[in-house]
Amino acid sequence: MASISLGGTPVKTIGELPSKNTSAPDFSLTKVDLSEATLNDYKGKKVVMNIFPSVDTGTCAKSVRQFNEEAAELENTSVLCISRDLPFAQQRFCGAEGIENVEMLSDFRTGAFGKDYGLEFGDGAFSGLHSRCIVVLDANGTIVHTEQVQETADEPNYKAALEALMDA
């Protein structure tokens, strides 16, 4: 379990993020058009997973905007913004914000992604939601960078994620 905080209150996740230099666990997530996305869909591409509790919070929305801006410059890379928000909320947000360079994915159906990646909040007000994390994969699906943000209200380290991506 990772010990993090939510608004300064200590909380724990149900596990730990997968280790660097290991294969990313497969997943089945829902796109905004309600179709399925799996890890295999991104085979041969570098992947940045921007994972967060809800796009309807300020820091989460800011991370989507920031990665949308950065993603416009990335070649052979998919930026996946993953939460347990309903796909309808994700689509509404992207439409209102003009977000076009990232792909929104939802874990609303089963919550398996949050459990398989060990990042689900295990207690506290956000229990059952995803904690704020970054996972970067190379084109072979190997994890090259992870970040479990210690205070949920804080933004992830965009620079470290993008540097890991460039080195992948």
Rank of each mutant, 00 (worst) to 15 (best):
G95Y: 01
V48S: 10
A125N: 11
T77R: 05
L137I: 11
R132M: 05
R84Y: 10
T38C: 01
A161L: 06
R65S: 08
D85Y: 03
D138P: 05
L137D: 03
Y158G: 09
K43D: 10
A71K: 06
S106E: 10
C133H: 00
I51D: 02
F126D: 06
A161F: 03
N50G: 07
G124H: 11
V48C: 06
A72S: 14
T13H: 09
A161V: 07
K45M: 11
C133M: 03
I51F: 01
T110W: 06
P10H: 08
E163P: 00
N50F: 02
M49G: 04
V136Y: 08
C133E: 02
K20A: 09
G98I: 13
G111T: 12
P18C: 04
T22G: 01
T152I: 08
D116H: 14
S5T: 15
N140K: 14
E147T: 13
S35I: 04
E103I: 10
K12H: 15
T110E: 10
Q66M: 14
S83H: 05
S83W: 09
D154C: 09
T30N: 07
S106C: 13
P156M: 00
R84L: 07
E100S: 15
D85C: 07
T57D: 10
D123L: 07
E97I: 11
F67H: 12
Q66R: 14
P25S: 07
S28G: 03
P87E: 12
Q90E: 13
C133G: 00
C81I: 05
A112G: 06
I51P: 00
D107P: 03
K115N: 12
S3Y: 08
